[in-house]
Amino acid sequence: MPLFDPRGRVRRIWLVGTAAVVLIVWSAIVLNTRADASEPPGTPPASSAPVAQAGRFAWPLTPRPKVTRNFEPPETPYGPGHRGVDLEASPGQQVLAADMGVVVFAGQVAGRGVIALDHDGGLHTTYLPVTPTVTVGDQVYRSQPLGTVVPGHPGCPVPACLHWGARRGAEYVDPLALVGTPSRVRLKPWAEGP
């Protein structure tokens, strides 16, 4: 094709545009196929698991629970705060894995049952107070039962609450952001006065 031929130029633009569309569609198909293939064998179909609408993770209780206390990040690593959220529950209610992962702890801490999971991407979630039905090393899938809620969480305004925590590395994160509904952020006044 000569460079000055107007029809040749139109053909080149059409070919480049068509190639771009094909690459975009192909990339979307490959990424979708890889996401589907990443589910481990034995994972129940998505229709059987409670799934969050906006986030990557599912709620650890079903039906969707009421939040009785929001996440309040500490200002310093060892400062006061609330490093998770408290969710209204019933004594004996099943606690579900928020996403697939590996059980890294299932036992007692200070007289309360605790379950801890490691997830892809360096995320770590905790659930307490619970009676665990899983053991360390178990691989769990999204919405798999982990144990049952036990009453006695301090500050719980109802018969039982599940404290659900999350952190990435050493940084605590709002678990509600994992399901697409982060806690309200409250701004504090400046320390300096006028």
Rank of each mutant, 00 (worst) to 15 (best):
G137V: 05
G169R: 03
R142Y: 01
L162W: 06
D36R: 10
L61H: 03
V103D: 05
V10F: 06
I24A: 12
T135E: 14
D86I: 14
G8Y: 00
W59I: 02
L31S: 09
M100P: 11
V104Y: 00
S38W: 01
P50K: 10
A58Q: 04
G111W: 05
E192L: 15
I13C: 05
D174K: 01
A58H: 08
A54D: 14
V95I: 11
R168Y: 11
L176M: 10
R142K: 14
M1G: 07
V102D: 03
Q93D: 09
H163Y: 15
K188F: 06
V140R: 04
Q93P: 04
T133L: 08
A28P: 02
R69E: 10
V16F: 12
T125N: 13
H124R: 15
R112E: 14
P182Q: 02
G165A: 11
P145D: 01
A106T: 09
T133R: 13
P132E: 06
P132W: 07
L176W: 06
G137A: 05
P129N: 10
G81P: 03
V102A: 09
G122K: 00
T62Y: 12
V102S: 09
V130I: 08
L87P: 04
E72M: 07
L23K: 03
V140F: 04
Q139M: 12
K188R: 14
P73L: 10
G180V: 07
L3T: 00
D99N: 15
Q108P: 00
V136P: 01
P154D: 06
R112L: 01
P91Q: 02
V140W: 01
H82N: 07
G84P: 06
G169T: 10
V104E: 10
V114F: 10
A177I: 01
R64M: 10
T135G: 13
W26R: 06
L146E: 12
A160H: 09
V51H: 09
A97G: 02
T126W: 05
